[in-house]
Simulated scan of single mutants.
Amino acid sequence: MNNGNFLIFGMGVGTDHLGYIGWTQRTLGDEEDIISDLKKDSGAAITQWMEQAAGSDKITIFEIDSAPSLENARDTVQFWCQYYGMLGAKVLAVPG
């Protein structure tokens, strides 16, 4: 449940792969709009990953956290990217 103004979400292929962590003001019910936003506003590495992911299987979007402000959302995304990176995941994120 997104209790803050910003949803911190993970995106992967299937249930066992995390490839991207980001933030949005949309809700989890707006997956197609979240993906569309990312395709328009993201860098080449994220767009390329999304194209490869979409070609191999269904992209899964899930909630990780929430944040009350844009600044907090950016910090929270950075935290989760570092956390999953320490666990060995190679996670992309939009630069703050």
Score class of each variant (00 low, 15 high):
K39C: 03
A93G: 07
W49S: 01
G96Q: 13
C81H: 07
G12I: 10
G43R: 02
A45V: 07
S66I: 04
N5S: 13
K39R: 03
Q25L: 03
N72A: 15
N5K: 14
G4A: 10
A45L: 08
P95D: 03
D30F: 00
N2G: 15
E31N: 06
G10E: 06
T47Y: 02
T47P: 03
I35C: 05
R26A: 08
L87K: 11
L18T: 03
I46H: 00
E71G: 10
S36R: 02
T27F: 03
V13C: 13
K58P: 00
I46V: 09
L7G: 04
M86Q: 15
G29H: 10
D16M: 11
G10T: 04
T27D: 08
T24V: 08
G55R: 01
Q48I: 04
T24Q: 03
I46T: 07
E71W: 11
S66K: 14
G22T: 00
D33M: 06
Y20P: 05
N5Q: 11
G85Q: 11
S66D: 09
T27H: 04
L18S: 11
V94Q: 14
L70S: 14
G4R: 11
D37C: 06
R26P: 00
D33S: 06
A44Q: 13
F79D: 09
R26G: 01
D41R: 15
G55W: 01
G43E: 04
D37L: 06
L87R: 14
I64S: 01
M11A: 12
G96V: 08
S69I: 02
D16I: 08
M86S: 15
G12S: 09
M86W: 09
G12M: 05
A67F: 09
M1T: 08
N72I: 13
N2Q: 13
G88R: 05
A73I: 02
D75H: 15
D41A: 05
N72T: 13
S66E: 06
G19P: 05
W49R: 00
F9R: 08
A73Y: 03
G85C: 07
C81E: 14
M11F: 00
D57H: 11
C81G: 09
M86N: 13
G96P: 14
Q78K: 13
L70G: 10
K58E: 03
D41W: 06
S42P: 02
A45H: 06
L38N: 05
F9I: 02
Q78R: 12
M50H: 00
F6C: 07
V91F: 08
T15Q: 13
I61W: 01
A53P: 04
D65C: 07
G10Q: 04
Y83E: 11
G14A: 06
N72Q: 13
M1Q: 10
V77M: 12
R26L: 13
A89G: 07
Y84V: 06
K58C: 03
K40F: 00
L28Y: 07
V77G: 13
L28D: 06
L87V: 03
T24A: 01
G55Y: 02
A93Y: 10
N5R: 12
L87M: 11
Y20H: 10
